[in-house]
Simulated assay, not measured.
Amino acid sequence: MTTTKRFLVEAAARNNAEWCAVMSRTHGVRGTFGREAWTAAVRTPPYYPDAVTLAPESDAAGLLARIDAEAPGASVKDSFADLDLTPAGFRVLCDARWIHRPAGAPAGAPELAWDVVRAPGALRAWALAWDGGAGDADLFRPELLDDPATFVLAGRTADGRVTAGAVASRSERVLGISNVFASDGGAAAAWPGVLHTAHRLFPGLPVVGYEHGEDLAAAVRHGFEAIGPLRIWLRS
């Protein structure tokens, strides 16, 4: 990995940990940032890890000592895919890639009208569209709107319905994008609007995130580069 990619991966990992910390706080869980990792001593919200490593070759034993690693459901985002948590009863849930797109406007114009969600009712409509009937819309709570570094982006049809969206998390050096969705066409259909909105809000910030599978391929088609591996571990 080149020095530039190493810097970008570290910036993306930090940004993602900050987003996980924000989401956890809205559920009453407060984590701790250390030199090697962000960790939460109690279980975080669904789909969010109990730890995110911030530096390569983190101390696995020390990391697991700071989370509830014994109970099923414990999870770790191994930001550099260099830990072995198998001896502690964890298995690999998925492998993914950090992605990076330089600052700059994307080509073409989005079909939907995009804005930043400002009110609890609008957030609820966004969450229901994101959830698609799976029963997890309550994950996104109104307290999320109070965080100054978090921007919930909504793509709306002419009649005002939310049919696409994402979450943008601003940090010092990068803008992290997560939870990209579109009701029709999946993440690939959402990226033009997400990137246009990100550029309008923060024109000087490069965009980072992580994806895998078809969503990774879609991100690459929209100007992203895969810059490094990450791995998510789960204790069954």
Results as ranks from 00 to 15, higher is better:
G135H: 11
A190F: 05
G228P: 04
V180Q: 04
N179A: 14
P192L: 06
G213V: 11
R161W: 00
D184W: 00
V152L: 01
G176W: 07
G165V: 02
D146C: 09
H212Y: 14
R231S: 11
L175N: 05
A187V: 05
L205K: 13
N179V: 00
L175D: 06
L195Y: 08
I177D: 02
A168Y: 00
N179S: 14
V180T: 10
A190E: 02
D136W: 15
P206Y: 08
A198T: 07
L216H: 12
P142H: 02
L201A: 07
I177S: 05
A154L: 01
G176T: 08
V152M: 00
A190R: 03
F140P: 05
A198R: 06
A158C: 00
T197Q: 14
R170L: 14
L195A: 05
E211N: 07
E211G: 09
E214K: 11
A182N: 09
A134D: 15
G185W: 04
I177H: 01
A154S: 05
L175H: 04
P206A: 06
P203Y: 10
S183A: 15
P203M: 09
R221L: 11
G176Y: 06
P192T: 04
A189K: 06
A198P: 01
A154I: 01
S178R: 04
V194N: 03
A168C: 07
A158P: 00
A164M: 02
T157Y: 08
A198V: 07
E211V: 08
A182S: 13
G209R: 03
D159F: 01
H196E: 12
P203W: 11
V162L: 05
V167I: 14
V207C: 07
R200G: 11
A168T: 00
G186K: 10
Y210F: 14
P142G: 02
G186V: 06
D215N: 15
L216M: 12
A137S: 15
A219I: 09
R141A: 11
S171Y: 07
W191L: 11
L139Y: 14
T197K: 13
A166M: 00
G223R: 10
V207A: 04
E143D: 15
R170H: 11
R170D: 09
D184G: 02
D159L: 01
L195Q: 11
G165I: 01
L175Y: 03
P142D: 01
V167N: 04
R161Q: 12
